[in-house]
Simulated assay, not measured.
Amino acid sequence: MKILVVDDDPGIRELVRITLQDAGYAVAAAAEAIGALSMLEAENPDLAIVDVMMPGMDGFALTRELKSFKDMPVLLLTAKGALEDKERGFRAGSDDYVVKPFEPKELLFRVEAILRRYGKEEEAPILAGPLEIDRQSYEVTCGSRTLLLPLKEFELLTILASRPNVVFERERLLELVWGLDYEGDGGTLSVHIKRIRGRLEGLTDRVSIVTVRGVGYKMEILP
Results as ranks from 00 to 15, higher is better:
Glu123Val: 12
Glu153Ser: 09
Lys70Asn: 13
Arg145Val: 07
Leu149Tyr: 00
Gly143Ile: 01
Leu176Tyr: 04
Val27Cys: 05
Tyr118Ala: 11
Leu77Ile: 03
Val52Cys: 08
Ser144Asn: 13
Asp85Cys: 06
Leu76Phe: 06
Leu108His: 03
Val177Lys: 06
Ala92Pro: 00
Phe90Lys: 03
Tyr138Gln: 10
Glu65Met: 15
Phe154Asp: 01
Ser162Glu: 09
Asp46Arg: 15
Ala26Arg: 12
Ala92Ile: 03
Pro125Tyr: 02
Ile3Gly: 03
Ala28Glu: 11
Phe102His: 02
Pro150Cys: 02
Ile159Met: 12
Asp8Ser: 11
Thr211Gly: 11
Leu75Gln: 00
Leu149Ser: 06
Met1Ala: 15
Gly93Gln: 00
Thr158Asn: 13
Gly202Asn: 07
Leu131Ala: 01
Ala28Trp: 10
Thr211Ala: 13
Glu43Trp: 07
Lys218Tyr: 10
Leu15Asn: 03
Leu200Trp: 09
Leu47Phe: 08
Val52Lys: 07
Leu200Tyr: 09
Asp46Thr: 14
Gln136Thr: 12
Leu151Val: 14
Arg117His: 12
Lys100Gln: 02
Glu41Ser: 14
Thr204Arg: 00
Leu173Lys: 10
Arg117Cys: 13
Pro164Gln: 02
Glu155Asp: 12
Pro45Gly: 00
Val52Phe: 05
Glu169Lys: 13
Glu175Met: 11
Val50Leu: 01
Arg116Met: 11
Gly119Cys: 07
Gly143Ala: 05
Phe60Gln: 08
Met53Asn: 15
Asp22Asn: 08
Leu149Ala: 00
Leu83Met: 14
Lys100Pro: 05
Asp96Met: 05
Ala36Lys: 08
Asp96Tyr: 03
Ile3Arg: 01
Ala113Thr: 04
Val27Pro: 01
Met53Phe: 11
Ile114Phe: 01
Gly59Phe: 05
Val166Phe: 15
Ala36Glu: 05
Leu157Met: 03
Val207Met: 05
Val212Met: 13
Asp7Ile: 06
Trp178Arg: 15
Arg206Lys: 15
Thr211Met: 12
Val5Arg: 05
Arg110His: 04
Leu160Phe: 08
Leu156Thr: 08
Thr204Lys: 04
Ala36Arg: 02
Leu127Glu: 11
Glu112Ser: 08
Arg213Cys: 09
Pro10Val: 04
Ile133Met: 06
Leu222Gly: 12
Val215Gln: 15
Lys2Arg: 15
Glu132Asn: 10
Arg13Ser: 04
Leu203Met: 06
Leu147Ser: 07
Met72Phe: 08
Leu4Cys: 08
Val177Met: 02
Arg116Pro: 09
Val99Asn: 03
Leu4Ala: 02
Ile114Ala: 06
Ile221Ser: 06
Thr146Phe: 04
Glu121His: 12
Leu75Ala: 00
Asp95Met: 03
Met219Ala: 07
Thr78Val: 05
Trp178Tyr: 15
Ser144Trp: 09
Thr141Glu: 01
Val6Asp: 04
Glu169Cys: 10
Pro10Arg: 05
Gly11Lys: 14
Ile221Trp: 04
Glu65Asn: 15
Ala33Asp: 08
Ala113Ser: 02
Thr63Gln: 04
Leu20Val: 00
